Amino acid sequence: MSITPDISVTVVICAYTMNRWDDTRAAVDSVLAQDRAVDEILLVIDHNEELYALACAQYAASPSGGARPRVLTNGHARGLSGARNTGMYAATTEVVAFLDDDARADPGWSEAMVEHYRHPEVDGVGGYASPQWPLDRPGWLPEEFDWVVGCSYVGQPTALAPVRNFIGCNMSMRRRVITSLGGFNAQVGRVGSKPTGCEETELCIRITQHEPTARLLFDPSMRVQHTVVAERTTFGYFARRCYHEGRSKALVSSMIGARDALSSERTYTLQVLPRAIGRGLRSRTADGVTQAAVVVAGLLLTACGYGLGHGRVVLFGAPQ
């Protein structure tokens, strides 16, 4: 197996709740078990003293066969963007990878990622996130909307390809690039369990706006398994997540311009979703017809969130 020691990698895992402690330990263990060892693991605790104490106790001693994960507390504003920025600035390597606290990296994850950074024009690499359902996949949920649960979805590339942005649970970037841009914008992104997002979208677009020749690659062989908890398999969560995605997109559009902020969404809305509706209706099955209806509902909820979010920006201005 080829080893590329010339590319150094830090993996940042951000955690905020005791409820995911078992998942967080599994995420760290998956990084320690990589075929190609990473150079540094930073576990950033987001304003939770109990979780910070537990993590410090857990990783006080070096595990066998790997470097001891370093536990940090979020030194920025509460939320995922602040926690990621804490890890980004603390990292000492060329590449910083971000893995969610409820995701587990496949053994070949780091090796698949690192090979691309041999090319100097590559500023970021993201990968595939496979949903790990609590039981069976919900029959009503179309695969085009797996982004709702933070996973890869129909409409993404199926082979190595340049992309506008990554899925946040499985991505990496050159440290010098993201630090030069100030990292993740704390005005967007998840805070606690509120189903907002788009912080990785906003940063990825800023990268290519700042350096048009930069390449952001999606490699489906860079895989993680992303846990989906039972409460995220309900239509209520689906509706809230779609609505907040629209609001987040409106905020990002106000910050970096609607043309770039909505470029991928136009293709998704005009090509991917109509195919999903047609497939569901042609199936003439209860699940298929339900999925077609869910696609329409998801689109309308997201559009509603975007419209209301845009109106708020017009009335009150974008956060500074």
Rank of each mutant, 00 (worst) to 15 (best):
Y16L: 00
G126L: 11
E245L: 11
T269V: 07
Y243E: 11
F238I: 09
S264N: 07
T179E: 12
V313M: 15
D136A: 09
S263Y: 06
Q271D: 08
V313I: 07
Y306M: 10
L281A: 04
Q132Y: 09
V177H: 03
E231F: 10
H47K: 15
S193L: 07
S62V: 05
I207T: 04
D146T: 14
A186L: 07
T86V: 01
S8F: 01
V114N: 05
F98C: 12
Y237D: 14
S254N: 05
L80Y: 06
E199T: 07
E200L: 05
T17M: 04
V125I: 13
S81H: 02
V9H: 08
R68A: 14
C56E: 13
L273M: 10
R241Q: 12
D123T: 13
S263N: 05
I45R: 00
E202G: 00
S264E: 14
Y59I: 07
A186Y: 03
T196G: 02
A129P: 01
A15Y: 01
S221F: 04
A15I: 04
G236N: 15
P212C: 10
D23P: 00
Y89K: 01
T92Q: 15
A258L: 03
A230K: 14
P63Q: 06
H119Y: 11
R25Q: 09
Q271Y: 10
Q209H: 08
L135T: 09
M171Q: 15
I256L: 11
D219F: 06
P157K: 10
E144T: 14
V114S: 13
D219G: 06
I277C: 08
F235R: 12
V44L: 01
C304W: 13
A214H: 05
E200R: 07
L301V: 15
Y59A: 05
E50Y: 09
T179V: 15
R137C: 01
R284M: 09
P138C: 04
E40Y: 06
R279L: 13
H47I: 12
G189S: 10
V71R: 00
G288H: 12
C151H: 06
E94F: 02
I256K: 06
H76M: 15
S30R: 03
A214Y: 06
I41Y: 08
A103G: 09
R175H: 03
E115H: 02
P195F: 02
R164W: 04
L72A: 09
I207Q: 00
G182W: 06
G168K: 14
E50T: 15
L217Q: 09
T92P: 00
R68N: 07
A161N: 09
R275M: 08
G278R: 12
L273V: 00
R104Q: 14
T92W: 02
Q187T: 13
R241H: 11
R137Q: 14
A61F: 03
D123C: 11
P134K: 06
V38M: 07
V148R: 15
E143D: 11
H76K: 05
A303Y: 14
G288M: 06
R215D: 00
G197I: 02
T4G: 07
F238H: 14
R84L: 14
A60T: 02
S180I: 11
L262V: 02
E40N: 12
T285R: 08
L51V: 02
E200T: 06
Y306R: 01
Y59Q: 11
V38Q: 13
C56L: 12
N74S: 08
I41G: 12
R68V: 14
R284D: 01
C56H: 09
N170E: 10
C56F: 01
V11K: 04
T290I: 01
